[in-house]
Computed example of a mutant assay.
Amino acid sequence: MALWLVIDLESTTEEGGWPVEDMEIIEIGVSLVTRDGAELDRFQRFVRPRQRPLLTLFCRELTHIEQADIDGAAHLDVVWQELERWIEPYHGRLQAWVSWGDYDRQQLVNDWRRLGIDSTLSQLPHINLKQRFAKIRQLEKPVGLNRALELAGTSFFGEQHRALTDARNTAKLLPSVLPSLS
């Protein structure tokens, strides 16, 4: 059975946003799904940033992630090893990894390079579901996750801007895009 990893990240930020190179991951959420979007497994971890370990008020309000969650978390290099071990049993069946937009891919590539991480994901194709969804729906421009879910006849479930919740909601859109991935 073919499988896909749907990944979402939450990162340090301030109102108005920071460049990707200045952001650090504070939460990773991964939903392992089948072609029809059915979740088989999931992974979620908080990550303690190194450069800016104190979350801004804006970041805490946006993500609902508490400073204590981050203070008690491991750094990305340790969390990434946990994720790699979690992925290992599925590796032979993984078709690609998916994210809503390109931010998550850019952040991971930057962090892998910065930390010298050789990731399993770098060997898999990445699908920017936001772009693919817009192309399939013949939208003038890509839309946000909530709007895409509405267009697909469903709605967002759970708390927005939490990595696993966002990944699970993104996975709902995978079946509508996969037929175009041949």
Rank of each mutant, 00 (worst) to 15 (best):
G29F: 11
R137P: 00
G37N: 05
F157A: 09
N110L: 12
S31I: 10
I127V: 15
D71M: 06
H161E: 08
V33L: 11
D36W: 09
A163F: 00
Q138A: 15
R132D: 04
Q123D: 01
E39R: 11
V98L: 01
F133T: 02
I28E: 02
E150G: 02
R42D: 15
Q138W: 01
L139Y: 04
R105L: 05
E66I: 02
Q67S: 06
L3D: 11
L178T: 04
E159D: 00
G72K: 06
N110E: 09
S31Y: 03
L40E: 15
Y90R: 06
N146S: 07
Q67M: 11
G153Y: 14
L181H: 05
N169C: 05
E39T: 13
Q95A: 11
E159H: 02
F157I: 11
N110Q: 13
L5S: 11
L124R: 11
R45S: 13
L173C: 13
L55Y: 03
D71I: 00
W97T: 09
A96W: 00
R93E: 12
G153P: 13
G101Q: 04
L173N: 00
E66R: 15
R42P: 04
Q44D: 02
W100L: 11
S119N: 10
D111N: 13
D118L: 13
T63V: 04
E10Q: 09
L145M: 09
V30W: 05
S11T: 15
I87D: 07
Y103A: 12
Q160S: 12
V109R: 13
I117Q: 10
E140W: 12
N110W: 07
D104I: 02
E14I: 14
P142E: 02
G16Q: 03
T120S: 11
G16S: 01
I127C: 08
H91R: 15
S180H: 06
R50N: 13
A134N: 01
E39G: 05
E14W: 08
H75I: 06
I28Q: 04
Q67F: 06
R137F: 02
F157Q: 08
T170W: 03
W112V: 02
R48G: 05
S119C: 09
G37V: 06
R114A: 12
G101C: 01
I65G: 03
D8W: 06
E61H: 12
P125S: 12
A134D: 00
F133C: 00
K130I: 00
W97S: 05
K141P: 01
F43P: 14
I26M: 12
L108A: 04
L151D: 03
E24Y: 07
I25G: 00
H75M: 02
S122V: 01
P125T: 10
Q67L: 11
S182I: 01
W80F: 14
A96M: 01
H161S: 05
R45Q: 07
W86M: 13
E15H: 14
L173M: 05
I7C: 11
S176N: 07
V78H: 04
V177H: 07
T12W: 09
V30K: 06
G116F: 08
E66S: 11
